[in-house]
Simulated assay, not measured.
Amino acid sequence: MTQDRQGARGDPEPRGSSRRELEPEIRRDLSGTLSYGDYLDLHRVLSAQHPQAVPPRHDEMLFIIQHQTSELWLKLMVHELRSAIGLVRADDIHPALKRLARVKHIQHTLTEQWSVLATLTPSEYAQFRSALASGSGFQSWQYRTVEFLLGNKDPQMLPVFEHDREVHEELRRTLEARSLYDEVLAWLARRGHPVPEEVLERDWSQPYTPHRQVVDALAGIYAEPTRHWAAYELCEALVDVEDNFQVWRFRHLRTVQRIIGGKPGTGGSSGVPFLRRALELTFFPELYDVRSRIQDVRPGGYHGAAP
Rank of each mutant, 00 (worst) to 15 (best):
Ser83Phe: 02
Ser83Lys: 09
Ala84Glu: 04
Ala84His: 04
Ile85Cys: 07
Leu87Asp: 06
Leu87Val: 03
Leu87Arg: 14
Val88Arg: 04
Val88Trp: 01
Ala90Trp: 03
Ala90His: 09
Asp91Ser: 15
Asp91Gly: 13
His94Glu: 15
Pro95Glu: 10
Pro95Phe: 09
Pro95Thr: 12
Ala96Pro: 08
Ala96Lys: 01
Ala96Tyr: 02
Leu97Arg: 06
Leu97Trp: 01
Lys98Ala: 11
Arg99Asn: 14
Leu100Met: 15
Ala101Gln: 10
Ala101Met: 06
Arg102Ile: 11
Arg102Asn: 12
Lys104Glu: 12
His105Tyr: 12
His105Ala: 13
His105Trp: 11
Gln107Pro: 00
Thr109Phe: 08
Leu110His: 04
Leu110Thr: 01
Thr111Trp: 01
Glu112Phe: 07
Glu112Val: 00
Gln113Pro: 02
Gln113Lys: 07
Ser115Lys: 10
Ala118Thr: 01
Ala118Glu: 14
Ala118Met: 09
Thr119Gln: 12
Leu120Ala: 04
Thr121Trp: 02
Thr121Pro: 03
Pro122Met: 08
Ser123Met: 10
Ser123Gln: 15
Ser123Trp: 04
Glu124Gln: 13
Tyr125Trp: 07
Tyr125Asp: 03
Ala126Asp: 15
Gln127Gly: 08
Gln127Leu: 12
Gln127Asp: 11
Phe128Gly: 00
Phe128Trp: 02
Arg129Tyr: 03
Ala131Ile: 04
Ala131Ser: 15
Leu132Ile: 06
Leu132Arg: 01
Ala133Leu: 14
Ala133Ile: 11
Ser134Ile: 13
Gly135Pro: 01
Gly135Lys: 05
Gly135Trp: 05
Gly135Cys: 08
Ser136Lys: 04
Gly137Trp: 05
Gly137Gln: 10
Phe138Glu: 12
Phe138Pro: 02
Gln139Gly: 08
Ser140Val: 07
Trp141Ile: 02
Gln142Leu: 11
Tyr143Gly: 08
Tyr143Cys: 09
Arg144His: 03
Arg144Gln: 12
Thr145Asp: 06
Val146Leu: 14
Phe148Thr: 00
Phe148Gln: 04
Phe148Asn: 02
Leu149Lys: 00
Leu150Ala: 00
Gly151Arg: 01
Gly151Asn: 02
Asn152Cys: 04
Asn152Thr: 06
Asp154Leu: 07
Asp154Ile: 02
Pro155Asp: 05
Gln156Trp: 01
Met157Trp: 03
Met157Val: 14
Met157His: 09
Leu158His: 04
Leu158Cys: 07
Leu158Arg: 06
Leu158Trp: 06
Pro159Glu: 05
Val160Ala: 09
Val160Phe: 09
Phe161Lys: 02
Glu162Pro: 05
Glu162His: 15
Glu162Ser: 15
His163Ala: 15
His163Tyr: 14
Arg165Asn: 09
Glu166Gln: 13
Glu166Leu: 10
Val167Asp: 03
Val167Arg: 09
Val167Gln: 07
Val167Tyr: 05
His168Cys: 12
His168Trp: 12
Leu171Cys: 10
